[in-house]
């Protein structure tokens, strides 16, 4: 059963199991939009966690290894959240002065080609993907991406975008907002994008 809550900050209705709801200290729910306001300071990150259960007889009663998302907002009170809002805004202004006037900026963690199972034990290459984090702003998959290379600029366009919300399985999404881990999917090859690159996202009307 999906329970719904009112966001503590804005009062908007949020669902319990949508994976986007952040919880402050004392389990106060925070909707995605309100959490995204300070994600620039407190981004989510994932790690692996091992669970080992030992029975009363001392035998192994089951073990499990799974990904868990670490959310720094879980240790914050509502007062700390309100205090973090102007701090996040000043960081945003500073980063925008450093990076430039783009709509959003995406830091690349990895670039790889997906593989798919073609049946009969054959594995064939599929789409080209670039994974990383949105470090400033938010954007949609239709926006144009600029790659800067020593005075030259290359313009590419992603075919779709995916967000990683729960676990490590990405889900298609229309947009990627600040602080979120996402994947840009390209039908064409983009081997000129390397780990560590910062991609500039410009609006659709600014297509070069």
């Amino acid at each position: 059963m999906n329970r719904t809550f009112a966001c503590t900050a804005c009062g908007r209705t949020v669902r319990e199991d949508d994976g986007e709801t952040a919880y402050l200290k004392d389990d106060l729910p925070l909707c995605r939009e309100c959490a995204a306001k300070i994600r620039i300071l407190y981004p989510r990150s994932f790690t692996w966690q091992s669970t080992y259960t030992e029975s009363s007889d001392g035998f192994d009663a089951g073990s499990d290894e799974r990904t868990v998302w670490v959310d720094p907002l879980a240790d914050m009170t509502m007062e700390e959240y309100r205090e973090a809002l102007p701090a996040a805004e000043s960081v945003r202004e500073r980063m925008r002065a450093e990076l430039g006037g783009g709509k959003a900026y995406f830091r690349v963690d990895d670039n790889k080609r997906r593989l798919k199972n073609a049946g009969k034990g054959r594995i064939v290459p599929s789409d080209y993907t670039v994974s990383g984090t949105v470090i400033l702003g938010s954007f949609t998959a239709e926006d144009t991406i600029r790659v800067h290379r020593r005075g030259k600029t290359l313009t590419v366009k992603a075919d779709s975008a995916e967000r990683i919300i729960k676990g490590l399985v990405p889900k298609p999404s229309e947009f990627l907002d600040e602080g979120c881990h996402g994947i840009l999917v390209f039908k064409e090859d983009v081997p000129f994008i390397y780990p560590g690159d910062i991609l500039e996202i410009c609006g659709q009307e600014e297509t070069v």
Binding site: T47, W48, Q49, Y52, T53, S55
Partner: peptide, 22 residues
């Protein structure tokens, strides 16, 4: 009584970016 132990499988925060280093 069954006892459950939960252990994080990382080495702590990364020295540069602060994300969990596993």
């Amino acid at each position: 009584m069954a006892e459950t132990m939960v252990v994080r499988m990382d080495l702590g925060p990364c020295a540069v970016c602060g994300r969990p280093a596993f």
